[in-house]
Simulated assay, not measured.
Amino acid sequence: MIDKQIIDRVIKIYKNELTYYQNLLSLSQKQQKLIKNSDLEELERILSSKEQVMSKIDDLELKLKPYKNACIKALDLDDKRWISQLLETELFDLELEDTINSIKTLIKELNDLDKQNQKLMADKKNELMKEIGKIRKGSKVNKSYNSKQARIHSTFIDNKS
């Protein structure tokens, strides 16, 4: 049987996840500003920070797994819907439900923001490709005007003796 301690541990893990998702959202918002400002150096730092936060979320998911498996086994829950089914049992906990709903909301916001960021990045890439094309074209024009090739003409020298 599942006891309150297991539910409390699940809540604690999900609350930690919620904090990391909030950090991820904040980093994604900063990322968007950096993309708009073309600050690539700072953008690289933010992307690295996002990777670290996602890694911490993955670690929390690994910590959650034994509790998840215990709940699934003890309460005969579906593996994919275990949390919503758990909330329908006598172990219902409002704090857990609120935390899960907050995480779902944050994940949706993150997905939307990441789509916007990807579009901005694609637009910036296209702008840069156009600029590179202009630079290459200008470089070719400059080369054609500035190339001073030595012209060697045949000269006939008439020596009269």
Rank of each mutant, 00 (worst) to 15 (best):
K125C: 04
S26Y: 09
V53Y: 12
I100Q: 07
D39R: 03
I57Q: 07
D58W: 01
Y67W: 03
K15V: 00
L77K: 08
M121I: 14
D114W: 00
S154G: 00
M1L: 05
G138V: 00
L34T: 09
W82Y: 12
K80Y: 04
W82K: 02
Q32Y: 06
R136W: 05
P66I: 07
D58H: 07
S102C: 10
Q118S: 12
L87A: 03
N126L: 10
I72D: 04
S26N: 14
K73M: 07
E61D: 10
L62N: 13
T105V: 11
Q31Y: 01
R136T: 11
D58T: 06
I103M: 00
I103Y: 02
M121R: 08
A150W: 03
D79F: 01
K143G: 08
N126G: 00
V10C: 07
D58Q: 07
S55N: 12
D3A: 07
D114P: 02
N69L: 15
R81A: 05
K119D: 12
N23Q: 15
D59L: 11
K124I: 08
I46G: 02
Q5G: 03
R151W: 02
I2R: 06
N37V: 02
S147W: 03
L34P: 14
K15R: 13
L87S: 04
K4P: 00
I7G: 01
N37F: 08
K68S: 05
S26T: 13
S28P: 06
Q5I: 09
L64G: 10
E51M: 06
K124A: 15
K134L: 11
L60V: 03
K160F: 11
L110K: 06
Q32H: 13
K33L: 12
I157S: 05
N146R: 12
E109W: 02
R9D: 05
I132Q: 06
Q52E: 13
G133H: 13
S84T: 06
L91Q: 07
S144I: 11
L60T: 03
K36S: 06
L86T: 02
I2D: 06
K130P: 02
I100H: 04
S139F: 15
D98Q: 15
E51A: 08
Q116T: 13
R45M: 10
I72Q: 10
N159T: 12
Q116V: 12
S161D: 12
S49L: 14
L43A: 05
Q149R: 09
L60G: 04
K50I: 05
L64C: 08
I107T: 11
Q85H: 04
K50Q: 13
S49V: 01
K15Q: 11
I132R: 12
R151C: 00
L64F: 11
Y14T: 03
Q32P: 01
L43Q: 07
S102G: 09
Y14H: 10
S102I: 01
S139C: 06
Y67N: 12
L86V: 02
D58V: 09
I13V: 10
I72L: 10
S144G: 00
I6A: 10
I35L: 15
S26G: 09
K33Y: 07
K125H: 09
K125V: 03
E88A: 05
K80D: 01
K115S: 10
S38K: 14
L60Y: 10
N69W: 01
K119P: 01
T19E: 13
I135L: 08
K130E: 11
K148Q: 14
E42L: 09
